[in-house]
Amino acid sequence: MSEKPIPRAALNTPQDELSPAESVKRKGFISWLVVGWVAFASATGTFLAMIVRFLFPNVLFEPPQSFKIGFPDDFQIGVVDERFKALRGIWVIRDSEGIYVLSTVCTHLGCTPNWLRTEGKFKCPCHGSGFRKSGINFEGPAPRPLERYRIVLAENGQIIVDKSIKFQQEKGQWSHPEAFLKV
């Protein structure tokens, strides 16, 4: 095309430079300039912070995090109970010592793994992570075990699961008394 970029030299002609008198005037002005810019910068910063804060609402309309799932006797030893998977996003597993609750969120990228009974493992369909019945990861890209949720008994003997409190194995939290319900 016929257009040419403007030569650099043309941008800085001698007329653009300030005369000595003008730069002296500017010198006296400089402290006001600093004040002005600091005020402008902090106002802009505050406004940006407000925008960021605006993205986080104070109230969330999401299902309750704490709920009852029935009596301990409702769960058979050695079975991965999938009844609460769809609605609550948990697996309830009872072994010979007690009951624990696993999150159905894969620790890799948050897909929902499937319980493969014949192979005795949780297998995530998205990237092939595999977890043992305990929740420990052993294959695929998952970086850490599935999370366990708080599990306690209510006064009437029902089990309460609280999803707002989670226990992570790699932080040594599975030994916490509320991560495991002794039966």
Binding site: G89, P113, P125
Partner: peptide
């Protein structure tokens, strides 16, 4: 959409 059922493969 069904949040509890990941299609295989997703």
């Amino acid at each position: 959409a069904n949040p509890s059922l990941s299609p295989n493969p997703a």
